[in-house]
Nucleic acid binder design. Structure first.
Lengths: 263, 263
DNA sequence: CGATAATTTGAAGGTTGTCAAGTCCGGTGG
DNA sequence: CCACCGGACTTGACAACCTTCAAATTATCG
């Protein structure tokens, strides 16, 4: 009994924004303690999801936003022919579901890449609280604006870049996100399959596989299945197109160092 | 005097949301007449921009959102090497500047493609009014959510699609936007250069040029410089990948399906 | 431990990028 | 008014990067 009680308390605590490790990354950032409680109260408990389980699916009615607490997710669209496009991979602190606000239906599917947990935030209630807490409203706009930015970065990556650059950019960006989460930025654990990663990058799985092999033999990475260790950040940076001309740095478009396939 | 007075009135009227033809597409949608006046009051007049002039540039401090009133714009990012990526083309009713909300600095540049006008909406004041007008707040979230959706569509287009499909998808989508604006959906006026269009599509200018030629000879389009007339919507739909499975008709040029580059 | 899926590796071909040259159009100046 | 000029656009030839197809190898899971 005693133990059961303790478990419940712990659970309650874990559900609470104030006790959450993501405090600074999530909606509560920049919100006072008083208002935090009001946010706490609208949160709904949710049991962990297993790999492959969806939080929401395309066309499902919109009711809540979801904050990733632990684990990771992918979001993707699927068209009539069954082709799909991975839109993003999502780590703790990220908020999923914004694309449903305008149509009241989800426009994509969000699936767990591993055993994961989320906070469910009923949107109607969130909007209500936000209307009374300007800081929360501002934060909400900030978060969705960041999503727009991320999509733009994805777009930049997809627009006419070599396969190798794309993978390098992805790894660098993932590493940065690890750093922000206080994880070791050199050791990446890819929750997604090669197929999903390839899809995200706009490539086929064979290309990604070859790329990993090549980058390993170049001494940039150590690849061991889902675990990727970044051995040489400088080289990775170079492969990402930073100084894409072999000569040196800047030469924006003067004489694009022939052979390059870029515009 | 009399005449001058009339001009001023007209100008004032034009600035007013209530009198704006974009009424239903813009922020005022779903807002009562009373609240509309409060929105009116924060709008700032702005003289027309000429082709090539920017509304804002990357890294400029964020202060306002901008609603396209007339004309058209492109938004694009530029990286250190000078490579740029066109993120979108924007017609009347669209709102620019959301990507700056999170960092307080613009993340891209917005440039007029032709002589155009915008409404400037100071963000701080907008947020203030929105805090008191829940419908406005909701509409604001809807609009930015739609932007996320548009970016996702762009991403789907960029992710592993043939050049021809990309152009077809773009034209179809532009045609739909024309329809929503009550313009003739068959007659598109491309304000952007071939180079800008190619960049948006993730291709090079030569490919786009060849594509226009081919689609014209296929009887899908009539291309006359910047003016594109959609002759056969069904064929355009087919080229966009709708029924890309060989089962359907319209085998563009006899090339029998094989070699498809899709996953 | 065996079956199935995921990943890797190899060979060949195609779509699209690169390079190069020609055409068209608008604008300017004589 | 017309000729000239410069930039945008088009067209052609060739090559390269990546995809496709095929098969081997390695992991995963009951």
């Amino acid at each position: 009994m005693n133990e059961a009680h303790a478990v419940v308390d712990l659970d309650r605590l874990r559900r609470t924004c104030a006790a959450c490790g993501l405090h600074q990354l999530c909606l509560p950032a920049a919100i006072g303690a008083d208002d935090l409680h009001r946010l706490d109260e609208i949160l709904q408990a949710r049991r962990p999801l297993e790999r492959g389980q969806p939080i929401f699916r395309t066309d499902h009615p919109f009711s809540s936003l979801y904050v990733v607490r632990s684990g990771s997710f992918k979001t993707f669209t699927t068209n009539e022919q069954g082709d799909s496009q991975v839109l993003g991979f999502h780590l703790p602190g990220e908020i999923l579901g914004f694309d449903a606000v305008s149509t009241d239906r989800h426009q994509c599917t969000a699936e767990a890449l591993e055993r994961s947990t989320v906070c469910e935030v009923p949107y109607a209630k969130l909007a209500q609280v936000a209307a009374q807490v300007p800081d929360l409203q501002r934060q909400l706009m900030r978060v969705i604006s960041r999503e727009v930015q991320r999509d733009h970065e994805h777009l930049v990556m997809m627009g006419r870049r070599q396969a190798q650059e794309r993978l390098a950019i992805f790894l660098k960006s993932l590493s940065d996100r690890y750093r922000r989460l206080q994880r070791d930025p050199a050791v990446l654990t890819l929750g997604m399959s090669r197929y999903e990663l390839a899809n995200y990058l706009g490539l086929v799985v064979e290309t990604v596989s070859r790329l990993f092999t090549r980058m390993q033999s170049l001494g940039v990475l150590e690849v061991h299945r889902k675990t990727v260790r970044i051995v040489d950040f400088a080289k990775l940076e170079a492969l990402s197109g930073e100084g894409h001309a072999e000569a040196t740095n800047c030469e924006q478009d003067g004489a694009p160092a022939r052979g390059g396939r870029r515009a």
